[in-house]
């Protein structure tokens, strides 16, 4: 992996929510084309970690460098990074007053300054890829949860991002819709997209993950290749967590 370019680098990052120390001394490097799965119990700081990458959360100590740009208070830099980093949310967050096609073109038109025809052609391509091409003129409220999440993924992809962040993308979906979203994510991974995925879908982690990161109480407890991580977790905290999510 070392021959590849480093695209995200955390160095000694700390973050507090008031008194609550949510991230403690995070050091992490992500290389181009890597697929990283982040898991851990709720409140462990895994969502906060990826939300720091596009500055939806502000870190208070240490440094985060994304695509060669350091995240600080310069709004121009933050906007530049956000355009290069796609984000998929647990609650989809599609814009309910815009059609699916408009949801997908708003970024390219207003941020990338793409002519409308071109933006719409790209959008239709991505809708095809996430297999909802026929829903282009509908509104988000008219789609199922799984379709909405796939549209949300397509919306991020339309910006041609260098990195995609997924914040529990399947956690608010009905069980039968999880697969259709995971299939899209697997396609994306196989195309070589750099991905950071917060999820408890262990099947997904095993299949496409290059590294699994386990977090607890704001600390990266353990990171390893998926096979090793699931078969031979080294830390007792990891073993306990895996027992709880795998034993049903």
């Amino acid at each position: 992996m070392t021959e590849k370019n480093e695209i995200i680098r955390f160095e000694g990052v700390h973050k507090w929510f008031g008194e609550f120390h949510v991230l403690r001394d995070i050091n992490l490097s992500v290389y181009e084309g890597e697929r990283i799965v982040i898991c851990g119990p709720s409140g462990s700081g895994k969502s906060t970690l990826i939300r720091c990458i596009n500055r939806l959360e502000e870190h208070q100590r240490g440094s985060i460098v994304v695509d060669g740009i350091e995240l600080n208070h310069t709004i121009k830099n933050i906007e530049k990074i956000r355009a290069e980093v796609g984000m998929v949310f647990q609650q989809f967050n599609l814009f309910p007053h815009l059609t699916i096609l408009e949801n997908l073109t708003v970024g390219p038109i207003w941020v990338r300054k793409t002519p409308r025809k071109e933006a719409e052609a790209t959008a239709r391509d991505y809708l095809e890829r996430v297999r909802i091409a026929h829903q282009a003129t509908k509104y988000p409220g008219q789609l199922s949860g799984g379709q909405q999440q796939r549209a949300a993924i397509a919306r991020s992809l339309c910006m041609k991002p260098k990195v995609m962040l997924f914040d529990e993308p399947t956690s608010s979906l009905d069980p039968e819709m999880v697969k259709e979203v995971l299939d899209v994510m697997i396609d994306l991974a196989e195309d070589g997209m750099t991905m950071l995925v917060v999820t408890h879908e262990m099947g997904f982690a095993k299949r496409v993950g290059d590294r699994v990161i386990f977090m607890d109480e704001g600390v990266i407890v353990e990171e390893n290749k998926p096979a090793l991580f699931f078969e031979h977790p080294s830390k007792p905290r990891t073993q306990e967590f895996l027992r709880q999510i795998l034993e049903h």
């Binding site: 956000r82 984000m87 941020v111 949300a152």
Partner: peptide
């Protein structure tokens, strides 16, 4: 909604 919008770089 705001988070999704700023995440696009708007």
């Amino acid at each position: 909604q705001t988070e999704a919008a700023v995440s696009l770089g708007l």
